[in-house]
């Protein structure tokens, strides 16, 4: 299956450096249409103002965490079907369970390579 690399990805992370790192990894995989937000609150504003095809979000953020953002997205009838990839340093089993229960599309634990990120995105899109 050919993946459309022109999809608009919303990248959410409170660390500007980490956004830059993930953005570089996405670009290495051919995804260049990226918008950014520094927490869940800002991400929801972006989602209300423009069409986004895919969300890549950190878990631990101030104001609104990744898991709170995920729940807000799944509870909104206009956004509920959006693919949501959680990116986090928390690989503990109980965290994975919480994310799955909240409706995450897939889960990726830092550190990761561009290949792993690309593979996770591809798997999510193929299931749509």
């Amino acid at each position: 299956m050919n993946i459309d690399k022109n999809i608009k990805i919303l990248l959410v992370d409170d660390f500007a450096t980490m956004r830059k790192v993930i953005k570089n990894l996405l670009k290495q995989s051919g995804y260049n249409n990226i918008v950014e937000a520094e927490d869940g609150v800002e991400a929801l504003k972006v989602l209300k103002s423009e069409k986004v095809d895919f969300i890549v979000s950190d878990w631990n953020m101030p104001n609104m965490t990744g898991i709170e953002l995920l729940k807000a997205v799944r509870a909104d009838s206009d956004l509920s079907g959006l693919p949501f990839l959680m990116v986090t340093a928390e690989g503990l089993k109980e965290n994975v369970v919480v994310a799955v229960k909240a409706g995450v599309s897939n889960y990726i634990v830092k550190p990761f390579t561009a290949e792993v990120l690309n593979e996770k995105i591809k798997k999510i899109i193929e299931k749509l």
């Binding site: 500007a16 830092k110 550190p111």
Partner: peptide
Amino acid sequence: GDIEDAVGEITNIISGVARKKLE
């Protein structure tokens, strides 16, 4: 600031990997 930001994130990520191994 970029360096300090990155050191915080590297510390967080190494802690996550180590805690997963401890788990």
